[in-house]
């Protein structure tokens, strides 16, 4: 559906995006992850032609997009991070304005469907600039869906939404994908990506470190394991001793539980037990856990595991 070939953006001395090769396939939900400043929004702006790349190209359905092309945006719906509605229009008028830009002459039925779906029907005649953040986010989603695009690009789509709103957005995304649409989500809320995405790309300092399915990502990270140990009592010296071990990446304490992120796939339970017992600790429970996407994300984007991407 959408592909980039060595897409690069350089601002004077700063390389925002470095030789990015993305491949978003038709009909999938693609999660685009990265810490703040990784280059996600810059990438999205280049996909939409709002920023001219320094080098490389964007292909949509195999056709390269030129700097003056704009007709391809008829197939795309976009929800931006930090929705801005500064116009003097009501929510209803704003969506109708955009619907007409997309060439829809009588969008009112479709508008009603979307406004009702996202609980904005009762406030549709209020000024868009007076909407709350969550309402503006929903309005952005309506604006992005009004013309039934083949590709949805969502930049932080659930930002500012309450749990009910998040559920509504998730339902729309899943329903959309089931109907054959392609969804490209850029988000920091990793649990949302984990639930929805078929494939994930992780961007760090402008470079795509990993692009893989969720299962592939977990398998790749199976080199590392996570362990939870419950103790009768946790001595502060024990946490320090554990952290200093070469096979332990991270130790998090939660009451009497210690959550360990290990650097190795080997069975080191015996070593851990000995270390804990020597420190005077009494083990009540010891259990290995599957790494969540959040931990994978933190692990992949930390510098001492860049080799993992290779």
């Amino acid at each position: 559906m959408i592909k980039t070939e060595n897409l690069t953006k350089r601002y004077q001395n700063h390389l925002a995006v470095d030789s990015l090769c993305l491949d978003v396939r038709l009909g999938e939900i693609y999660g685009f992850l990265g810490p703040n400043g990784a280059g996600k929004t810059t990438t999205i702006h280049m996909l939409l032609g709002l920023i001219r790349p320094t080098s490389g190209q964007v292909l949509i359905h195999g056709e390269a997009i030129g700097p003056r092309d704009f007709a391809f945006k008829r197939q795309i719906g976009v929800v931006a991070e930090e929705p801005v509605e500064a116009s003097k229009m009501s929510g209803w008028e704003l969506v109708r304005f955009f619907a007409r830009l997309y060439g829809l002459e009588k969008p009112e039925l479709r508008m009603e469907e979307l406004f009702r779906s996202l609980d904005l029907w009762d406030v549709r005649h209020g000024m868009a600039r007076d909407y709350s953040r969550g309402m503006r986010q929903k309005l952005s989603l309506i604006r992005a869906l009004i013309h039934e695009p083949r590709l949805l690009i969502l930049d932080e789509p659930v930002s500012g939404l309450d749990p009910h709103g998040i559920r509504q957005v998730r339902e729309i995304i899943n329903y959309y994908q089931q109907a054959g649409g392609t969804v490209f989500i850029s988000s920091h809320i990793l649990s949302e990506i984990e639930h929805s995405a078929n494939r994930v790309g992780i961007l760090h300092e402008g470079r795509l470190l990993i692009e893989d399915s969720m299962a592939g990502l977990r398998q790749r990270l199976a080199k590392q394991q996570r362990m939870t140990i419950e103790l009768e009592q946790v001595a502060p010296e024990l946490v320090k001793r554990l952290t200093s071990q070469p096979y332990i990446v991270q130790v998090q304490q939660e009451g009497r539980q210690l959550h360990l992120l290990l650097r190795t796939q080997a069975d080191i339970r015996a070593q851990l037990s000995r270390l804990i017992t020597d420190s005077g600790g009494i083990i009540l429970k010891m259990q290995g856990d599957e790494m969540s996407l959040e931990e994978a994300f933190v692990t992949i984007t930390s510098q001492d595991v860049l080799a993992l991407a290779e």
């Binding site: 007709a71 479709r110 979307l114 329903y175 109907a179 649409g181």
Partner: peptide, 22 residues
Amino acid sequence: MQISTSTVGKERVATRSDPPVW
């Protein structure tokens, strides 16, 4: 929740059917 998605999953039609730029 259901919203109509009549054109969503369709393959992109040929460029010739795009309206002219002007």
